[in-house]
Design a protein around this nucleic acid. Structure first.
Lengths: 190, 190
DNA sequence: ATTAGTCTGTACTATTCGGTATATACCCGA
DNA sequence: TCGGGTATATACCGAATAGTACAGACTAAT
């Protein structure tokens, strides 16, 4: 039996894809096994906690990606450097567009937030959105907004992004996501 | 065996509640049976097509409610009556807030849009959001906006509402939904 | 009173579920 | 060459799954 996978993290992308497309309940071990090419034995070797641990690992990886690629850059802008803040906000919009594949790819945190799975991953889901809103609000403050306005604008921007994913999928038209994101960016910078 | 239910529509609310809280895959016939108080016999009597037909009926009822309570009033504003348009837009925001129970209650169309269930109910999901955006855009035109601006503003408003439900649930704080909706209304009227 | 049609509960099928146990194969260090 | 830890496949478990079959009980019209 040749080894196919060296590390747990090698199969996380395919795991994430399966949870995204089928949801937590809908992703059966059979689906996961087929998607990853691994049997139950290997799956339970890597994730002794079963499906719950798989989903947790996927959320952790998604969270880490956003932390590194979106939240941290927004949070760490030097105070007073409004030009840099605007540049980082623009960059974060591009990173978001890339990650969600222009609305074709779903946000797993949103899927979990809308389902009863929420209770299983409540903390991860809450922290993800809180971190996003707070990081963006911080960047807006550096860009010159008042604290209260920055907070509500950040909230609305994140909410609109999430809703745009829903509407883009509903319409099966990814252009509407790109358009919405462009308007969000303009509003954040304007 | 006493009759518990006279018509199919009597159990639709409980059916909707079950699909909302557990999703399509997560709502088993056992859950549905317990929630509605009906055995499988009755369930398959009313819905010979099983779960798929139940979900379809629920979507149809939700769609009809929105059509009557939100879309039609927005669509049927007399041309030129900007004041009436503003009043109807305000009313629709209040109807939406009531329906989604300030963000506690999930939008089933959004849940389906994000899952692979989407392929089963593609048309219903697409039509729901398209009708909403178009009705709101029409109202905005009557209120004085240009057609293009009306369309993008309507899209963004619906998207933000959907995203606000996600974020409100993630934060387990319904006040943030009410706040977001108030800002959306102000933006639509301003 | 009879009957036809409308519900309702229950037992049943076959399948699939998440999870466990086990046996086998591989790689690497001694 | 010989273990021992790491992967992997497979058979298996009890529970739950969607759906079917059917018999009983109620209602309403005849």
């Amino acid at each position: 039996m040749p080894r196919l996978v060296a590390e747990r993290s090698d199969i996380l992308p395919k795991l994430a894809e399966t949870f995204r497309t089928r949801g937590y309940e809908g992703a059966s071990l059979a689906h996961i096994g087929k998607a990853t090419g691994l049997g139950k034995g290997s799956l339970y070797h890597f994730f002794p906690g079963g499906k719950a641990e798989m989903a947790e690992a996927v959320l952790a990886e998604m969270g880490a990606w956003f932390e590194n690629s979106v939240f941290a850059p927004l949070r760490s802008i030097p105070a007073g450097d409004a030009a840099e803040a605007r540049a980082r906000i623009s960059e974060s919009c591009r990173a978001v567009e890339r990650y969600f594949a222009s609305g074709r790819r779903v946000c797993l945190f949103a899927v979990f937030a809308l389902s009863e799975t929420r209770s299983l991953f409540e903390k991860q889901v809450r922290d993800y959105f809180r971190n996003w809103v707070e990081a963006l609000a911080r960047a807006l403050v550096v860009a010159g907004r008042g604290p209260a306005a920055a907070r509500t604008e950040a909230f609305d921007a994140v909410a609109t992004i999430q809703g745009a994913i829903v509407l883009a999928r509903a319409a099966s038209d990814e252009r509407v996501f790109a358009g919405a994101l462009a308007r969000i960016e303009a509003r954040l910078l304007g």
